[in-house]
């Protein structure tokens, strides 16, 4: 049942990311809803479970992005792997730490994804003008959602079920 909900959630998140949260205006800034969903899900699943969903989410995004295919896959799995490490070693219930981790993961996700872009000559420019603002927006949205979820007990960092796996 949990997996079915996650499949549906991932599917809806991808659809939302391609429509409502698609990069807007000339700035091309946008939110990464899939990344936020994966982070949220990883917080109460096993590390392997989180990585598998990150794999699925990355592939799902990649099939809609033929120009940078493979980029989302690597970016999402890397971000979730690092979130797992952060979740087990840092106190993410501290708002400042949570915000910082979200920002770092969002930036890292965009940096890795940009490496797969066919326009690598514009890497620095795109990173500064598009990816950094998008990462900040994503981190901000994620912080608000996860903080609210944490207040209501729906996000409990530091409880990742890693008994079945170790790095």
């Amino acid at each position: 049942m949990k997996n079915l909900v996650m499949i549906l959630g991932l599917y809806l998140a991808v659809a939302l990311q391609l429509s409502v949260a698609a990069p807007f205006g000339a700035s091309q800034w946008g939110f990464d809803i899939v990344l936020l969903l994966l982070i949220y899900y990883s917080s109460f699943s096993s590390r392997v479970g989180g990585m598998l969903w990150a794999l699925a989410g990355g592939v799902l995004l990649d099939v809609f992005d033929p120009a940078s295919m493979g980029g989302h896959l690597v970016a999402k799995t890397t971000a979730i792997l690092l979130f797992g490490i952060a979740d087990s070693s840092l106190n993410l219930s501290q708002p400042a730490i949570l915000g910082a981790i979200l920002l770092l993961l969002s930036i890292l996700d965009r940096m890795i994804f940009r490496l797969f872009s066919p326009f690598l000559s514009n890497y620095g420019w795109a990173l500064l003008r598009v990816d950094l603002p998008s990462a900040v927006l994503t981190a901000l949205l994620g912080f608000i959602l996860l903080y609210v979820a944490m207040r209501f007990g729906a996000f409990l960092p530091g409880r990742m079920q890693d008994a079945d796996d170790s790095l």
Partner: peptide, 13 residues
């Protein structure tokens, strides 16, 4: 396993 999935994702990507 988690690291292996990550390595796999890099290769697949």
């Amino acid at each position: 396993l988690a690291l292996s999935i990550w390595a796999f994702s890099i290769i697949a990507g």
